[in-house]
Structure formats: C-alpha cells, structure tokens
C-alpha cells in the first residue's frame, strides 16, 4: 500500500484510544458557525470535563493536527463555565450528576458535546458513544447540534448507529 504503517498491526487499540480518535474525527465532520464563538482564534480546543478517561491518548491523537488552519489542542477542564471556550466538549462519566447543569450552562453555545453517559442524546447531548460488543459506535442528535449552530455532515450521520432529530428532552 501507498501508506505503510506498523501501528494497529501490533496491538488492538484500547476503547479510549478509539474514542480519542473519534473525538478528533467528529470535529472533522461538523461545521461551526463563523462567528459567535469567543475562543482564541488560533487554536481548536477539544476539552475533557471531569475525570480524564483517555490518559495520554487524546493528547497523542491531536498532536500536530489542525482543523480549518487551527492547531488542535486537548484541554482538561473542571468548571462547566470553561466549556464555552471549547469547540468539542467531552463530558466525562464522573459528571453524570451535574450533566443537566453543565448543558444548561452551555446553552446555545456552539460546542459539540460528546459523552459516554447513557441516554446522553436524549438529555440534550449531541454525540454519545455506545458499545456494540467491543466496537465503539456512537449516536447523534442532529437537532440539538443544529440548535447550537452546528451542522453535522451527512457522512457523520451515515455512520451513526442512531440519529435523533428531536430537541424534546427526556430525562
């Protein structure tokens, strides 16, 4: 093959290594509005709120990567209000108790929310990891993303195991 690689041939990537990659990949299939995000213009922040399940995997994934000319950085945050500066926010399972608060806090900010938390897309989240056996899949709620000014590419929707298009929040 044209692009020889030894990675992946040796060891099967761990669940969170996969998720770290996906986290980065999601951002490649989502369009953010041109204005309205008060973030530093030269970086593209992928933030982890709460306990970091990725270990060094996320940093490794985003290293040297750019999106729309901006270098991607991984950030560890603990305060929900810090999340508005992020483009992608992974809400760790440790934040289950205050999920509602976190989402409310974000409001209509153009932040792509991702989490492992169950029923996340029914509770106001945009992307939720699910496991099918040992395969990492995800479902999305495109309506919630649209409300935040984010456009999910049809390519992304195509590979999602489930696409919700409702802003009606369940519990």
């Amino acid at each position: 093959m044209g692009i020889p690689s030894v990675q992946g041939q040796h060891a099967k990537p761990t669940e969170y290594e996969v998720k770290a990659t996906y986290l980065y990949n999601f951002s490649r299939f989502v369009e953010w509005p041109a204005q309205g995000v008060q973030v530093q213009s030269d970086t593209f922040a992928i933030c982890v709120l709460g306990d970091n399940p990725f270990g060094p995997a996320l940093n490794a994934t985003v290293a040297q990567e750019t999106i729309a000319g901006k270098s991607v950085v991984a950030k560890q945050i603990s305060a929900p209000q810090d999340a508005v500066n992020c483009r992608v926010l992974f809400i760790s399972s440790s934040e289950a108790k205050r999920l509602k608060e976190i989402l409310t806090n974000l409001g209509a900010a153009s932040v792509l929310t991702v989490s492992d938390l169950p029923r996340f897309t029914q509770r106001g989240g945009m992307v939720q990891f699910v496991l099918e056996g040992d395969r990492v899949r995800f479902e999305v709620n495109s309506a919630i993303a649209a409300r935040a000014g984010l456009t999910m590419s049809s390519e992304l929707l195509k590979v999602a195991v489930n696409v919700r298009r409702s802003v009606q929040l369940g519990d």
């Binding site: 990659t21 996906y22 299939f29 899949r137 590419s153 390519e155 992304l156 195509k158 590979v159």
Partner: peptide, 13 residues
C-alpha cells in the same frame, strides 16, 4: 463516500 465509515470504523456502512 466511505471516509466517515473508515474514520469511524464502520465497515458495514
């Protein structure tokens, strides 16, 4: 048409 499938390891797609 298979980019997302590859990136998200969705061979069925």
């Amino acid at each position: 048409n298979s980019i997302s499938a590859v990136l998200f390891d969705d061979s069925r797609s």
